[in-house]
């Protein structure tokens, strides 16, 4: 680990100025991912600007019924918040499906979105990885590929985004509030993370030095009746093989008025399944109708022998999730 200069930020604007002015500076939030990367040598900043004590740790109810979540709200506190549990159950469920109780007490809202892939090659500095070290190649292509993407991958990178929360936020049309040197801007969740293309080192559309200050959740019918399901190799404390965040609003006759579907574990970003959503609007929810809708979305999937399992798994998990929501299941 390189020599490290530590600054505790006094306010958000000066933190932004410090990091934006130094390409080797990074923000430090909860630290659950970044501190590990310092030890592993995945990243080697020379300056850390600690934003974890900035007073951005409130959950505020907005006049229009929405919710504003400060970036420093801990994952555990957000999952426990009564308004989230009532109005955005998919967000609480996704948080509770991630990490462990200890880590949720440490990890922040903004930091969760900015965590990096758990691809074994990204974390092993002795192997080539375009995301960690651009231009060196991708060891996951033809290597260990069980967690690789099946949608939106590129020749440069086939990894997936590890966050559960981000998948839920994609399903509730959240907005990320970002502070930069030129002031504040608001980024729809669908534009926050990006597909790898030929620049896999860039996980998000943020510029260096831009700081996430809050996440806003609009109050919607699909968010009110929503949930999150995660398939993984053990019952708890593991990253997703695939996951489904979904919300459903039915007409009086039981047809789908509106629906939100986002998938985790399948792409470099949370994958909003808009083709599947369009297929389902106006139809009745059944195992068959949801499977057909998911298959329409998955027509674009590219798999190999290690990832082929993900296509039926995410299709079936989507059917399980939406039929459960239609029947009024609480989880």
């Amino acid at each position: 680990m390189k020599e490290l200069t530590y600054h505790r930020a006094d306010d958000a604007a000066s933190a932004v100025a410090l990091v934006a002015g130094d390409p080797d500076a990074r923000f430090l939030g909860g630290g659950t991912n970044l501190v590990d990367h310092l030890k592993l040598g995945v990243t080697s900043p020379t300056t850390l600007v600690d934003v974890s004590r900035l007073p951005l740790d409130e959950v505020t109810e907005l006049p229009d019924g929405g919710l504003r979540i400060g970036t420093n709200v801990r994952n555990s506190d957000l999952a426990a918040h009564r308004a989230v549990r009532r109005g955005w159950p998919v967000v609480a469920r996704a948080l509770l499906a991630g990490a462990s109780g200890q880590i949720r007490n440490q990890a922040t809202t903004g930091g969760n979105l900015l965590q990096r892939t758990r691809c074994v090659y990204f974390q092993d500095v002795t192997t080539p990885c375009n995301k960690r070290d651009p231009g060196t190649g991708c060891s996951a292509i033809g290597g260990y590929g069980r967690y690789n993407a099946v949608l939106g991958a590129s020749e440069a990178c086939v990894t997936t985004h590890p966050s559960d929360l981000a998948v839920a936020l994609a399903a509730v049309d959240a907005t990320v509030v970002v502070l930069g040197q030129d002031g504040e801007r608001r980024v729809p969740m669908s534009d926050f993370h990006r597909l790898p293309g030929d620049r896999p080192e860039q996980d998000t559309t943020l510029a260096h030095g831009e700081l996430v200050t809050a996440v806003e959740l609009p109050a919607t019918g699909t968010a009110r009746r929503s949930t999150y399901r995660k398939a993984r190799d053990r019952a708890s404390y593991a990253f997703a093989l695939v996951s489904v965040a979904a919300g459903l609003e039915l007409d009086d006759d039981g047809r789908v008025r509106d629906v939100r579907i986002a998938w985790g574990g399948v792409a470099h970003k949370p994958w909003r399944a808009e083709v599947a959503e369009a297929e389902l609007r106006g139809r009745f929810v059944s195992e068959e109708s949801v499977r057909a809708a998911a298959e329409a979305e998955l027509a674009a999937a590219v798999t190999d022998e290690q990832t082929a399992y993900k296509v039926p798994m995410v299709r079936n998990l989507t059917a399980l999730t939406l039929t459960g929501l239609a029947e009024g299941a609480t989880r």
Binding site: S76, A80, R85, R93, L96, G101, Q102, T330, R331
Partner: peptide, 22 residues
């Protein structure tokens, strides 16, 4: 961790296996 768990239960925190979030 167990001390933390008991405190979180006392505060009404739900978990991944809780049926009813409310």
């Amino acid at each position: 961790s167990a001390v933390g768990v008991l405190d979180e239960i006392e505060q009404g925190h739900v978990s991944h296996v809780s049926d009813d979030l409310e």
